[in-house]
Design a protein around this nucleic acid. Sequence first.
DNA 1: CTTTTGACTGAGT
DNA 2: AACTCAGCCAAAA
Length: 105
Amino acid sequence: MLFQKIYNIVRFIPEGKVLTYKAIASHLGLKDIRLIGYALHGNPDTDNIPCHRVVKSDGSLAKGFAYGGPGIQKQLLQQENVNFDHEGKINLLKYLWEIPKEQSS
DNA sequence: CTTTTGACTGAGT
DNA sequence: AACTCAGCCAAAA
C-alpha cells in the first residue's frame, strides 16, 4: 500500500526536523503531492506519525491541519526547537530532513 | 459498485 | 498577480 510507505517515512522524522510534502512524494516517485497530505488525513497512528513535522514546500504549515486544532502544529514544532520566521514559516535549508535511502521501500 | 473529493505543487492561461 | 488544470491514491458518500 502506498500509504504505508508514506507513513514509514514520516514516522522516522527526527525531532527538530521537518519534511515537505514534495520531498516525500519525490522520494516515492509520486507526482500527486496531495496523497501525502491525504495519507496523514487518515492518520492511523497518530502516536507514531508526527504529522506536525510535515510542512508545505515553502516552509509554511498546511492549512488543513487538524491534530487537535489549528495552530497546534506550530506549537509542537516550537517545542522541538524549530524556529519560525516573521512569515510563520520554517527555514527548510536548516530543518529539512534528508530521507535515508534505507527508509524507502 | 461508481463518483467525489482532499494536509499540495508547479506549469500554463 | 489570480485562476485553472493535471497528477492518479484511498476513504467516504
